[in-house]
Design a protein around this nucleic acid. Sequence first.
DNA 1: GCATACGACATACACAGCGTATGTTTCCAA
DNA 2: TTGGAAACATACGCTGTGTATGTCGTATGC
Lengths: 200, 200
Amino acid sequence: MPHVKSRREQYSDATRAALLEAATRRFAERGFAGTSLEDVAADIQATRGAVYHHFGSKPALFEAVAEALESRVMREVAEAAEGARDPWSAAIAATEKFLDWCCDPVYSRVVWQEAPLALGWVRWKELEKEYSCGLIEQFIQLLIDAGEMPPLPLEPMTRITFHMLGAAGMAISEVPEQDRFRVRAEYAETIAHLLKGARR
Amino acid sequence: MPHVKSRREQYSDATRAALLEAATRRFAERGFAGTSLEDVAADIQATRGAVYHHFGSKPALFEAVAEALESRVMREVAEAAEGARDPWSAAIAATEKFLDWCCDPVYSRVVWQEAPLALGWVRWKELEKEYSCGLIEQFIQLLIDAGEMPPLPLEPMTRITFHMLGAAGMAISEVPEQDRFRVRAEYAETIAHLLKGARR
DNA sequence: GCATACGACATACACAGCGTATGTTTCCAA
DNA sequence: TTGGAAACATACGCTGTGTATGTCGTATGC
């Protein structure tokens, strides 16, 4: 039973989606502290009441925005790795796709620059553990199982890799649009070199 | 001309130092957003007026706190490397001393967790460029000059190393006291392996 | 088909915290 | 001893969050 949506529910869903979109734009342009819920609501001709009704708080709204972005990006990253024929090229493909996304101003600003501030480190790390860290751990485990990498302690290796990629993400995101491609290439080269060095 | 300090200046200096100390404790315990200037001032039986007189703004106060910590830690790190006889063991010694300090709850919290949020990425990057990143860059340049490392792009390598070390420091500080030694060893092993892989 | 409940918002208000403008006191210097 | 400036304190305005309450339309039971 698919439960056909009533008109009310459709309106409600539309409002929620519009708020999410407006918030994404605002957060990406002005940052977390720089955007008031008043602004977000006004963008869709509503009031803060609507925001609090749907999301409950400002951090909760931001978290919804960040999660929507993360789930989309991580899905694409995972897909990019699926075509590869061995664990190593899978990891490389995933890294490339991830760096691509780091060039996106919305993703890089929201997830890498604003999220730790908005959610606090603890909550942010939980989120990343669920998305990026989870993926990274899978790849590393595969590499170790395949004998491509010595059996280093899994968690440190995962987190260090995560922070290496994070460094790239932050660096790329803070650079002006026209330099992104060059900076991306530099970081890709450096990371590739470090990871290849870790290969046995 | 030594300019003997008047009583007023001594009082003023004492107030400033007391504010700095109170702010350091508050920021380390409650974070930047979680501490109000009211609290800081009240800790030393003063009002916010004193804070604004001496520091001008909340971020400026935080920056003074962070700089005091950084300059002390980086001095110690640099000293630790001075005894070494070659660039590689100097870098190792510096890393060890840095990891020691990352175990310190005040330093790791203020400089690694709160500073980017409090000062904004731009200002934080400038600060780190002056302190930790500056040191790291020197070591890497020395290693490249000595032919111990291939000539990778300097800035990415610096920042990636910076974040790798930061990952270790944060992971260590999250773990209960009795596990620190083990976790520190795991991260040291992993980082050493990655850096050795980068060695030519 | 009509009353009623409930969901989806809007409105109004309380409150915290930053910054600033304006006192007030205390010390130093001429 | 007396201006004057430094070192604060006091008071106020403002922005923005969260919450409590009001209102209106739509689904639903009878």
